[in-house]
């Protein structure tokens, strides 16, 4: 596989995007687990399918469509939740299904042969393009900068929103900011594991990391490391057996989680 890596550009891109995806997952995954936003993130991911459909329909890059949709969804859910008493669970369910439906509608209206959408649904790290990689680099850089630069505030906000608000921290601003970051992170991950599987890559590495540390910073770093291991091994399995990379990465991560829980218990 090493010679192949040196020889083929698509494999190099796959490796780079695996590393980037792991960094994003370690950071954002830890946050969504601690803030209990897992379903919310699943909702944003699925709604972005509408954007991918729109991309095909309008003949723009589908990933840009996904970016627009997921950011708007994140802002939409936060705003509606603040303005009304609607349970965010219900809202997420509505956005989730509507986004998927829109995507299917857009694709149905797109003239010509239906495009291959399975790589967006399930991810295919081996087909990552130059543009995808550039978008991932930009989004990952942004996520790292925002989280590192405001780390103490994020920690306070995540741990105790009420207290943060009492000492005058603008928690509403942080909330919107965080939801937009989650949306960006999801877009960065779609090419690697796909809309349907993204939630697993976001939650499994931090969930394993949480078994072994009580420190937020360490939890993030462990999760990044685990993410890299899973995606490299998953990539290798996918390359060797010619199966979808998303599925092999997720199954590997999931089985490791189960094993880690059993080991920790005994």
């Amino acid at each position: 596989m090493i010679e192949a890596f040196l020889q083929y550009v698509f494999l190099q891109r796959a490796v780079y995007s695996a590393v980037l995806a792991s960094i994003v997952c370690g950071i954002i995954g830890t946050i969504i687990i601690e803030k209990k936003l897992v379903m919310m993130s699943g909702g944003i991911a699925h709604t972005s399918f509408g954007g991918i459909g729109m991309g095909f329909f309008l003949k723009i890059e589908p990933i840009i469509g996904a970016l627009i949709f997921s950011v708007l969804t994140a802002i939409g859910i936060t705003t509606v939740r603040r303005r009304t008493n609607t349970n965010s669970d219900t809202l997420i369910g509505i956005f989730w299904a509507m986004g998927m439906a829109l995507g299917i509608l857009f694709i149905a209206f797109t003239p010509g042969y239906p495009p291959d959408i399975s790589s967006y649904l399930f991810g295919d790290i081996l087909t990552v393009t130059e543009l995808d990689l550039k978008i991932m680099i930009a989004l990952t850089g942004l996520v790292i900068f925002v989280i590192v630069a405001l780390f103490n505030y994020w920690k306070a906000y995540l741990f105790d929103e009420e207290f943060s608000s009492v000492i005058g921290i603008k928690t509403i601003f942080l909330e919107y900011f965080l939801f937009v970051l989650i949306a960006l992170a999801i877009v960065a991950l779609i090419r690697v594991v796909g809309i349907i599987l993204v939630i697993a890559l976001l939650t499994i590495p931090p969930a394993i990391a949480k078994l072994f540390t009580f420190d937020l910073k360490k939890m993030i770093l462990y999760a990044i490391f685990l993410g890299i291991v899973f995606s490299f091994l998953g990539l290798w399995i996918s390359y060797q057996f010619n199966i979808a990379s998303g599925a092999s990465i997720i199954l590997l991560a999931g089985l490791t989680y189960i094993a880690a829980v059993i080991i920790k218990r005994s």
Binding site: Y153, K155, A156, D160, F163, T213, F214, M219
Partner: peptide, 19 residues
């Protein structure tokens, strides 16, 4: 269960309101 220790919790009280 939040991954934070005693020192970090108390330090929160020293945070300034402006980011």
């Amino acid at each position: 269960n939040f991954p934070i220790n005693v020192l970090d919790v108390v330090l929160m009280g020293r945070l300034k309101n402006r980011l």
